[in-house]
Simulated scan of single mutants.
Amino acid sequence: MPIDPSEEQNWAERWDELYEALSAEPRRMIISSLLDEPRGRRLPLPDAAESPNQPMDVETLSTLLRHHHLPMLARAGYVRWDDDPFVVQRGPRFEEPAFIIELVTDSIDDLPTPLINNCKIFKDQVTDD
């Protein structure tokens, strides 16, 4: 059975969108923060996006979230967010980036050492185990 080219392009674009969404630390931190919360719970921002790997002042992070990171995640359907109060929650396609984050986290023992040593989050997990 031949593959419909429009479906193949849609499939490839969805993967590209997923990788792009996970390519920035604040976006990964948002997805990771929401993983630990029940569906429907709203988390305060910028707290849910803060990372020990890339510390940033609150004002700068809030601006980047509002104008870049959150719109990208929302367009993909990964999150929903509001500006007042400044909060984020799971979107209808949240399970897609959540799967990747969980897969990496669950495979920490198999990650190359430089990826662990250069990431405070993973290094803390390995130290805690």
Rank of each mutant, 00 (worst) to 15 (best):
R39P: 01
E37W: 01
L70Y: 05
A74N: 03
E25T: 15
A48K: 04
E37V: 12
H67A: 03
A24R: 14
D129L: 13
S32A: 13
P97D: 09
D124Q: 13
D82C: 01
D84M: 02
P85S: 03
A48E: 04
F99R: 14
D82H: 09
R28A: 01
K120E: 11
A74P: 01
I116E: 08
L43V: 06
D36K: 15
L61M: 02
S51G: 09
E20Q: 10
E13N: 12
D4S: 12
R66I: 06
Q125C: 02
A76W: 03
I116S: 08
H67W: 07
L64Y: 04
Q125V: 02
S62R: 06
A21D: 06
N53W: 02
L18F: 02
N117T: 11
Q54S: 06
E96V: 14
T127G: 00
I108G: 04
R42F: 00
R39M: 08
E59I: 13
L35P: 01
T63G: 03
D57T: 05
P112Y: 06
V58R: 15
Y78G: 04
L65G: 11
V79F: 05
E20P: 00
L22Y: 07
Q125K: 15
P52F: 05
V88K: 03
R28M: 07
I121D: 08
L73Y: 06
M1A: 12
I100L: 15
D82N: 12
E13W: 03
H68D: 07
W15P: 00
Q54E: 11
A12L: 15
D36I: 00
A98W: 09
Q54V: 14
L65S: 09
M1N: 05
